[in-house]
Structures are given as C-alpha cells and as structure tokens.
Amino acid sequence: MNTETSSGAPKQKRFRGVVVINRDNCKGCAFCVEFCPTHALELDKAYNAKGYHPPVFAKPEACNGCDMCGLYCPDFAIFGYREKAEETA
C-alpha cells in the first residue's frame, strides 16, 4: 500500500492528531478537506496514479485526530487517530 503517515508536532495537548492518507485510493472528492473541523488538510496540487488530487496533511499541528476525514471519505483512503503525545515526543 502506498501510505503516507505524517504527524503533527506535539503541542501542550496529551495527544496529537495523526492522519493517514492512501493517496492512490483517493478519487479526489475533497470531502475530507472541506469537512475537516480544524482545516488540517489541503488538496495536493500533484495528481495520484488515478489522476485525482488527493489530500495532503498540510497542518499537522491543527489536527486533533477526530477522524472526520475517515468518516467522510467514500473511498476508505484516509483516516485520523489520536496518538499519546509522550509516545512520540
């Protein structure tokens, strides 16, 4: 699987949000970008293998790992989760 994982810089929170994007499963509907409550995602200017613009995790520091992106994505190409800050700090 062509999977990218990015993580935000730990803030003062006890956890941080992480978003995993499977670029090549994306069909570019942009639901995740539109409905991300913290605006942590943007559409990539580049294309994926299918010719769509997948999302990129543009503002990891904004992400709270709520997985709204995962709930919206009709193609199971993205999801979010929360990681305990101390684990990766």
């Binding site: 069909k27 509907c29 639901f31 769509y52 709930l71 919206y72 009709p74 193609d75 199971f76």
Partner: peptide, 20 residues
C-alpha cells in the same frame, strides 16, 4: 478494493459510518 463507485458517490461514506 478500490470500489466501483464514482468519485464523490455517497455510498462509500455510508459504508464508513456502517463500519463505525
């Protein structure tokens, strides 16, 4: 996978909710 559904088709979103 991937599904046959068109880009932006809502069916996949309902499947997400169903699996949750």
């Amino acid at each position: 996978m991937p599904s046959i559904w068109c880009p932006g088709c809502g069916i996949g979103t309902t499947v997400n909710c169903f699996t949750r």
